[in-house]
Design a protein around this nucleic acid. Structure first.
Lengths: 97, 97
DNA sequence: ACAATAAGTCAGATTTTTTTGACTATAGAA
DNA sequence: TTCTATAGTCAAAAAAATCTGACTTATTGT
């Protein structure tokens, strides 16, 4: 079903809607993310949902996935430039609470 | 099921999540809202969903419902002070798109 | 008096999101 | 070589959100 976009902020809001995305985003501001640590950090969450959220955040261009080819060869998710542009919005939001 | 709140911005984000809330919020910035007009303005929406969204926005303290006891006796929804505080967040969000 | 408009509610159906549990593939440690 | 960790995927189930259509009650307009 095609959704027409009427409200300009809606797209951005939608980007961060979903049960775990805001939390993932917040943690990504602090440091690079790794799948299994996230799973442990965000209690109540589950693999599938995190995997989906990460994939979507990636598709939206807020996070980028990198394979670190060092010592213990692993995968990292980092905020992109676009993602970083959202930080002030979050800060403002937090200022209101 | 009890949800624990970890991310500070999450509550605010949740306030405006839901298919129609952002749009309703945006329209409320422009002028007071009336149920049936909203229903006509927001194409694709439906009574039930709008009723629920309005009720929730009210509970969250972003909108307030007033019965206008004049000429054609009707009901209006207006942004509260709290609601108005969110305007700059929306503006910032729109600036990014 | 009669029809229309406003502002809903209610139950049930449909859709979307989120969760569960089982399973996979690769790397490193003991 | 066996065990553990990482980083997932897949199908199915469960839960949450949204939509539909019928119905309501009060107020206006004709």
């Amino acid at each position: 079903m095609e959704e027409i976009e009427t409200c300009p902020a809606q797209r951005l809001l939608k980007m961060l809607s979903g049960k775990w995305k805001a939390e993932i985003f917040r943690l990504s501001v602090e440091s690079p993310l790794r799948f299994n640590s996230l799973l442990r950090q965000i209690q109540g969450s589950n693999k599938q949902s995190l995997a989906t959220a990460l994939k979507e955040l990636e598709e939206e261009g807020l996070l980028e996935k990198t394979t670190i080819k060092l010592k213990p060869l692993h995968i990292e998710y980092n905020l992109t430039e676009k993602g970083k542009m959202l930080i002030p919005v979050f800060e403002q939001l937090e200022g209101l609470s």
